[in-house]
Amino acid sequence: MIITNYMRSEHRACDELFADAEKSVIDGDFTKAEEQFLKFSNETLRHFKKEEDELFVVFESITGNSEGPTRVMRFEHEQVRGVIGKMAEAIESRDKDAYLSLAESMMILLQQHNMKEEQMLYAMCDRVIPQDKKEETLKNMDKIEL
């Protein structure tokens, strides 16, 4: 379960960063919100990069399937990236309503996505990837920078 645990804790960390930023927006503190949102988006994009450049690649090479689950996940990452872009614009233009409305779509989108990964993909990774390869993948993922 080391893959699941590692990736899941990243999801949780991103959730918390997201909630922090939203709270600041509700309080009207956009300077703080901007900083927190940047943290959230960096962490999320880094997490995606870890998956797309490492975990998914390993999974695809072992299962020989790059058209299956990982393709769907990559596609969903694109959707999330799109919303992150819009949210950044909203925060830049200090548009509280637009931000909160996007935040709602984002939360629902992200949770649907995370649940799929945690319930299915990571569990599969933990099952099909050999132990030593898993440890190597985790190490490689730690090195990934944006």
């Binding site: 379960m1 899941r8 959730d15 709602e104 629902i108 949770q111 649907q112 945690e118 319930q119």
Partner: peptide, 19 residues
Amino acid sequence: EMEHPIPLQLSLSYLQSMS
């Protein structure tokens, strides 16, 4: 303060991977 169905999604995924 979460909208439906986020609480259900989150709790299920926590429950599933909980040790």
